[in-house]
């Protein structure tokens, strides 16, 4: 049978658990709750082992379950330690200067290039490793709201109430995250093999 944990050795499982915990910690800012949702997700993965699809990697599979557990935890909570210093994010404006000139136009070297993104990119483990590294390079509050929005798929209102953010603060954080993530992916994946 397709048992999800059959093909992973204990070292891989320990590493996977560690990755899940750091992801959950980033989203929840609460170590105990992070441990709890990871436990629940792993238990859920075992229980639903029959639904595991071998074309998906084990990591993809358990993270999909973890994502739902985190969304439940966040929705049930609606109060979190507020994030600090969002309004005066100093190194944020630095990034904008690096990308845009004084008229707000792209610096020539930073102008987005065409991306070649084949269908199967979504299953490419190597791509997701690059993606994770780019995400890790973001300031943590940007990474956190980006993942809440795009990965856990909470809507803007849920995120604002959970983090006590204004809508415009959230939009700025998401914008910064997308700008940086896009640039990192172009530098390290999409543009890496091109001659242009």
């Amino acid at each position: 049978m397709n048992h999800p944990f059959h093909h992973a050795d204990s070292e891989q499982l320990t590493e996977l658990r560690q990755q899940m915990i750091s992801f959950a910690r980033l989203q929840l800012s609460d170590d105990q709750q992070a441990e709890d949702v990871v436990q629940e997700a792993l238990a859920g993965a075992l229980k639903n082992a029959a639904a595991f699809n071998r074309t998906a990697s084990l990591k993809t599979w358990v993270f999909a379950i973890l994502k739902n557990k985190i969304a439940d935890a966040l929705r049930g909570r609606y109060r979190q330690p507020p994030m600090s210093d969002i309004d005066d994010c100093k190194d944020c404006s630095l990034t904008d200067d690096q990308l845009f000139d004084e008229h707000g136009h792209w610096h020539k070297a930073e102008r987005p290039q065409r991306w070649d993104a084949p269908e199967q990119l979504v299953h490419d483990e190597h791509f997701w490793r690059v993606f994770d590294r780019c995400l890790d390079a973001l300031p943590s509050e940007q990474a956190r709201v980006f993942m809440m929005r795009e990965f856990i798929e909470l809507d803007s209102q849920d995120i604002c109430s959970a983090l006590e953010l204004s809508t415009s603060n959230l939009h700025v954080l998401l914008y910064r995250a997308r700008l940086r993530l896009r640039e990192c992916l172009e530098d390290h994946w999409f543009g890496a093999g091109e001659t242009t």
Partner: peptide, 15 residues
């Protein structure tokens, strides 16, 4: 690319 990013992050982790 913004559309692709959303598509990828959401499509990636469907169980």
């Amino acid at each position: 690319q913004m559309l692709l990013l959303r598509q990828l992050t959401r499509g990636a982790r469907k169980p």
